[in-house]
Design a binder for these strands. Structure first.
Length: 904
RNA sequence: GCGAAAGUGGCGGAAUUGGUAGACGCGCGAGGUUUAGGACCUCGUGGGGUGCUCCCCCGUGCGGGUUCGAGUCCCGCCUUUCGCACCA
């Protein structure tokens, strides 16, 4: 028999909520019980991609957290907006289409139906009338509209960009979707080929995206990751002339302009446009070969060769603007074409990479910064390494004596200056001479915003025969995807849409001239960049969102989602939001005020022993790394061991049968291949949705990575069963409406009030801080006490049910009804804490002697210090420890502790 | 390599500003109840001690330090997890 009739209860109340539209959020806030309008509170989950495999237990973690907050806020008089939708464009549906011929729309609809059914079983208080779907033309009409805004503002442009092309997927991929030269999805090999692409100028917003981070209530680590991603770096640009080619200039970016005198060579990225111009005939062969090989390497392969820097001399030379020195120009792939200017001045004495390179190719190393305190030492003949600290004194940096031929009228001297002063002086000098200027660069690059896919938003763009773009007029939106039945076009190296001439070929609505539709589509990020706005006003066919409503609800008060979106989604959405702000569409500069990442839920803990592949001999776990015995390099095989066969020995687990063999004990990420995936449907079947919700919150802190344990679900299930019996008594069926006969109309005792109000205090504080695990512990403690009472005053039971309701809403509704209420408790006010009930008449205090607890005493809460100390001294065990010794000091912390410090 | 977070019983985890370490739950043990139970109820449960209504010692990754008192603060290590990867 189940602990309580959860299946009936959950079904009953889910139906009730649906029928009564309990969680439908009106556009105008309602008036609270006290007559004031409810204050808006917007609590949002990152909406899911409805994958074919359905919900996994990770989804309800964040969703339960937001649901608790939503339900709690409603009870506290807020008008809560708590919506859900589908981020439904995406590669898997398209790949499935290629394989089976099923239209992605069909797959997507089915998956959404599954997801929705699964989510509804969990009893989340979403306003389903606001459900949105990014693949719905009524939705993506506005995604296209926003793209037009970007285009109008000059933030969308076309470029020939070398992009990752994946033959297997028949599509291009963004840098971040390619790992190790292979696609993130599926692990197919990829290569870089140039293609016409749409780019968004997110770099124009770099500074504002950086500034905006200051006022957000976000995890520090996420803010830091965004800062690093934007990667602001301040320094200077310096122009170097090319010897023998007065018309050319090589511009470099450096954060260390003070070391300009130490530049003994230059390096261009292999892709740099000047490479061919500076290369001499003698070096042409070697240079071409190097460039060719660099192109084949992925960025990761380049970075893998960390300590083996390679390069080739071009034969050309540049002229250092500060002293006219002729320095060789090399190319090397450790210089990235995409960062700074794609060229560097190499200062081997003060940069580790340049140092390693100079050593390898025997290029001069000139020290120009001396570490503090070493100012007078001679320059070492053969320095050991680069001195990279940004403090010290400049040396060997004097060109004041001469005007530099064709470059400068007046030389400059940095000797004797500190790094900071030297930087200021040299930049000012370069600026005066027209040879350089202060500059700031960002790591952030423009956003590659087009994909060669079918299943994405079409661009509202027409192209003439020269590929010159013309926006589709606003009134003609949406540009819908064509109905197709063949995917043969995929894999041809073009977008699938390319193969549909009846869709592609169109005319200019103004002039009637023949035009082609843009056949690229938008990336999956597009729809998720603004969905939080659409929830506010999902049916609006005039605008993406009504300005009045937007003002009422924005910004999102609480946004919960995985930390895997710490950079990309959250940065892209912030970027669009700022553009929409500039366009007057939204009133806030930032979309998400408070952000929380839920931690990953791992599979059950597993014990693994290792056997040698060769002869099956046991290999102790500490020797195994990377699937090999690290002592011999022999491959090993992992074998799962049942819990009963292992025991703990010191810090690690060993086989009971062979205590010398250590066993690996850890939880792994849930994955199909590992077979450790827990399906929420199964858990609901066995324990109910309330138990699943409660367990996911009870596992530990929301933000933390936690291993799943099905045994532990039984614990929270028992708790719910006890709560059921406390109020419903021995009722076994939902239809009997029974109530425990221990519930009375009596006035609560002061003890009962104290226990209740302790729970009110803890649960309230903990929900406010999103500490749901300890909130549940407090509810359990209350229940433990309440069950020992002979009679339970109805008023106390009611407050307990209200406290329980955000966590286990179905059970709480049922108990609420049995306590004599009709209708939902969703808007019943949250129990109010009355401090006076918390006061205890006596308090227990620990008494220490020299910091070690020797006894406890019960004293009157209002007792004076003297009385407490006297009682403490009188405590038998304490007296034993202080007798015959001098008490040197008495520490008294009211209500907490007494400590006697005695001599020996 | 760089950066961030975290190391507490057999396990998940508690512990406001430094103030009785191990709340709450799982597991385990004992007992009760029941035709039976993977149900329910009660009690116990960090380790050790010739101690078992008492008391003592040890104990929050390791080594130091500050303090009457440290899981908590400081210094130095170790380990794990998660990010980032030649950013000039």
């Amino acid at each position: 028999m189940a602990a309580y009739p959860f299946a009936q209860i959950e079904q009953k109340w889910q139906r009730h909520w649906d029928e009564h539209e309990t969680f439908k959020t009106p556009d105008e806030p309602r008036v609270a019980e006290d007559g004031t309008p409810r204050e808006p509170y917007y609590v949002l989950d990152m909406f899911p991609y409805p994958s074919g495999s359905g919900l996994h237990v990770g989804h309800p973690e964040g969703y339960t957290a937001t649901d608790i907050v939503a339900r709690y806020k409603r009870k506290n008089g807020f008008e809560v907006l708590h919506p859900m939708g589908w981020d439904a464009f995406g590669l898997p549906a398209e790949q499935y289409a290629v394989k089976t011929g099923t239209h992605p729309r069909e797959t997507t609809e089915e998956n959404i139906a599954t997801f929705k059914k699964q989510l509804k079983r969990l009893g989340f208080s979403y306003d389903w009338s606001r459900q949105i779907n990014t693949t719905d033309p009524d939705y993506y009409k506005w995604t296209q509209w926003i793209f037009l805004k970007l285009y109008e503002r000059g933030l969308a442009y076309q470029a020939e960009v070398p992009v990752w092309w994946c033959e297997e997927l028949g599509t291009t991929l963004a840098n971040e979707e390619v790992i190790d030269g292979k696609s993130e999805v599926g692990g197919h090999p990829c290569e870089r080929v140039p293609m016409r692409q749409w780019m968004l100028k997110i770099t124009d917003y770099a500074e504002r995206l950086l500034d905006g981070l200051d006022d957000l209530d976000w995890p520090a680590s996420t803010i830091k990751m965004q800062r690093n991603w934007i990667g602001k770096s301040e320094g200077a640009e310096v122009d170097f002339g090319v010897v023998g080619r007065p018309e050319e200039t090589i511009r470099v970016f450096t954060t260390r302009p003070d070391t300009l005198f130490g530049a003994t060579y230059m390096v261009l990225a292999p892709e740099h446009p000047l490479v061919s111009k500076v290369t001499t005939e003698a070096q042409a062969g070697a240079v071409e070969e190097y460039v060719r090989r660099a192109q084949q390497k992925s960025e990761l392969e380049r970075t893998e060769l960390q300590d083996e820097k390679t390069g080739v001399f071009t034969g050309g030379h540049a002229r250092n603007p500060v002293n006219g020195e002729k320095i060789p120009i090399w190319i090397a792939d450790y210089v990235l074409a995409t960062y700074g200017t794609g060229a560097i001045m190499a200062v081997p004495a003060h940069d580790e990479r340049d140092f390693a390179f100079a050593k390898k190719y025997d290029i001069a190393i000139r020290e120009v910064v001396r570490s503090p305190g070493q100012a007078d030492a001679p320059s070492p003949e053969a320095p050991e390494g680069a001195y990279v600290e940004k403090e010290g004194t400049l040396v060997n940096s004097d060109a004041s004596e001469r005007a530099i031929d064709g470059i400068a009228e007046q030389g400059v001297k940095l000797d004797g200056l500190g790094v900071q002063e030297a930087q200021e002086k040299i930049v000012a000098w370069l600026d005066d001479e027209g040879q350089g200027r202060p500059a700031t660069t960002y790591k952030l690059r423009d956003w590659l915003f087009s994909r060669q896919r079918f299943w994405g938003e079409p661009f509202p763009i027409l192209l003439d025969e020269h590929d010159a773009p013309k926006p589709v007029p606003e009134e003609d939106l949406p540009v819908t995807l064509p109905d197709i039945d063949s995917y043969d076009a995929i894999g041809s190296g073009k977008s699938p849409l390319e193969g549909l001439p009846e869709w592609v070929e169109t005319t200019d609505p103004e002039t009637g001239a023949p035009m082609r539709r843009e056949t690229n589509t938008m990336p999956q990020w597009a729809g998720s960049c603004w969905y939080y706005l659409r929830f506010i006003d999902p049916g609006n066919d005039e605008l993406p969102v009504d300005p009045e409503k937007e003002k009422r609800w924005m910004p999102v008060n609480l946004y919960v989602g995985g930390s895997e979106h710490a950079v990309l989604h959250l940065l892209y959405a912030r970027f669009w939001h700022k553009v929409l702000y500039d366009a007057g569409v939204v009133s806030t500069k930032e979309p998400f005020q408070k952000l929380v990442h839920q931690g990953l839920i791992l599979g059950e803990r597993e014990f693994t022993r290792y056997l040698s592949d060769e002869d099956e001999h046991a290999v102790s776990a500490e020797h195994v790394d990377d699937g090999k015995d690290q002592r011999t390099g022999e491959p090993v095989r992992a074998v799962e061991v049942p819990r009963e066969e292992v025991e703990k020995q010191g810090d690690h687990f060993v086989l009971k049968a062979d205590p010398d063999t250590r066993v690996e004990a850890r939880a792994h990420k849930m994955s199909k291949s590992r077979g450790n995936v827990v399906n929420p449907d199964d858990v609901i079947e066995e324990y109910g949705a309330d138990a699943l919700r409660l367990y996911e919150m009870f596992m530990g802190p929301l933000e933390q990575v936690k291993p799943w344990s099905t045994d532990d679900v039984a614990g929270v299930s028992r708790f719910l069963g006890r709560a059921w019996r406390l109020v419903a008594g021995e009722a076994e069926d939902v239809s009997d409406g029974g109530r425990s006969d221990t519930i009375t109309d009596a006035e609560p005792s002061s003890e009962q009030l104290r226990v209740l109000h302790q729970a009110i205090e803890s649960v309230t504080d903990d929900i406010e801080e999103l500490r749901f695990n300890t909130a549940i512990a407090a509810l359990m403690e209350f229940l433990g006490e309440a069950r020992s009472w002979d009679a339970l005053p109805k008023a106390v039971a009611e407050d307990f049910v209200l406290l329980l309701s955000p966590f286990a809403p179905h059970l709480a509704e049922e108990l609420w009804e049995r306590l004599g209420h009709s209708g939902s408790l969703a808007y019943a006010p949250w129990p109010e804490l009355a401090e006076e009930h918390l006061q205890e008449e006596t308090v227990e205090m620990a008494v220490q002697v020299n910091g070690t607890v020797r006894g406890t005493i019960n004293v009157d809460a209002a007792a004076e210090e003297d009385a407490v100390l006297e009682k403490a001294r009188a405590e038998e065990n304490v007296r034993r420890h202080i007798d015959g010794k001098t008490v040197q000091r008495e520490i008294y912390v009211p209500g907490r502790i007494v400590n006697f410090v005695v001599g020996s």
